[in-house]
Every structure is written in structure tokens, then in C-alpha cells.
Simulated assay, not measured.
Amino acid sequence: MPTPTPDRSVVNSTTAAFGERVRSRRQELGLSQEAAAQRCGIHWTQFGKVERGQRSLRLETIVRIADGLAIDAGQLVSGLPLPEWRGRDQVQQ
């Protein structure tokens, strides 16, 4: 029986845009994924998934990444596209 291949798709447009920002900042600093991951306190394979938009993150992890990349967490998340949500139209504001 063949080994199932892991899903390598982007979670959504929000995670993709966040990952692009993380990659851009890492490159500005001249860091490899491994070096950046070490500074952020996460495993390099997980860091790569973040950059590819394949991980949806907890707030604590976003703050950790921002700290490791010497950038304000707000700069990484401000203006990101909203994730698709089926119930959005049903919520009254």
C-alpha cells in the first residue's frame, strides 16, 4: 500500500499572505529558514510551512515569530485578507 502524501496546499488566502510577509522579512534579514526558525524558537520544517501558507497559527506563535524576526507582530498581520467564513453573511453588526 502506498504511503499517503501529505497535503501541501495553502490553508487560505490569509495564511498565504502572512507567509509571504514572514518570508520577505526573513530575506530582508539575510537569514536561512533554519536560522530564522531557530531565532523564533520553532522547528525549521514548521517555519517552512508558515512561509508556504500551510499552517494556521496561534497568537503566541505569531508573536514568537515576530520577535525572532525583530518586527512588530502588527506589521505581520495588519491588513491581511479575511479568511473565508461561511457564517459571515449571517452575522448582523
Rank of each mutant, 00 (worst) to 15 (best):
A73S: 14
L31N: 09
V22L: 07
L29I: 11
V22D: 04
E28N: 02
D7L: 05
Q92G: 09
Q93D: 15
I71G: 04
R52P: 04
I62Q: 02
Q27I: 10
E84N: 08
G19T: 06
E34T: 11
I42M: 10
S78M: 15
L31I: 09
G68R: 00
M1N: 06
Q75S: 15
S13K: 12
S13L: 14
Q75R: 15
L80D: 04
G79Q: 08
L29V: 10
G53Y: 02
A17D: 00
R39M: 06
G30P: 04
R8V: 12
R88Y: 00
A70Y: 10
V77T: 12
L57P: 00
T14Q: 07
I62D: 05
G19W: 00
H43K: 13
P6R: 14
Q33C: 10
W44H: 12
R39A: 04
P81W: 01
S24E: 15
I62C: 10
Q90P: 02
F47W: 08
G19F: 02
K49H: 08
L69I: 05
W44Q: 13
P83N: 09
Q38P: 04
R86Q: 11
D7V: 05
R39C: 03
P83F: 07
L76F: 11
S24D: 13
Q54C: 08
V22M: 06
A16D: 09
M1T: 08
H43Y: 14
E28C: 02
P6G: 11
V11H: 00
R8F: 13
L82S: 04
I65P: 00
I62K: 07
S9P: 07
S13D: 12
Q54G: 10
Q54E: 11
T14V: 05
E28S: 07
P4E: 15
T45R: 13
R52H: 11
R55N: 11
R52F: 07
N12W: 07
T45S: 12
S78R: 15
A16Q: 07
V10L: 03
I42H: 03
S32D: 04
R88D: 01
E84A: 09
L80R: 05
A35D: 14
Q38D: 13
R88M: 02
T15Y: 01
T3V: 15
G79C: 08
R55V: 09
A66R: 01
A66E: 03
R21Y: 04
A66H: 01
A70K: 12
G41C: 10
H43F: 13
I62G: 05
E34V: 08
D67L: 12
Q27M: 11
T15W: 02
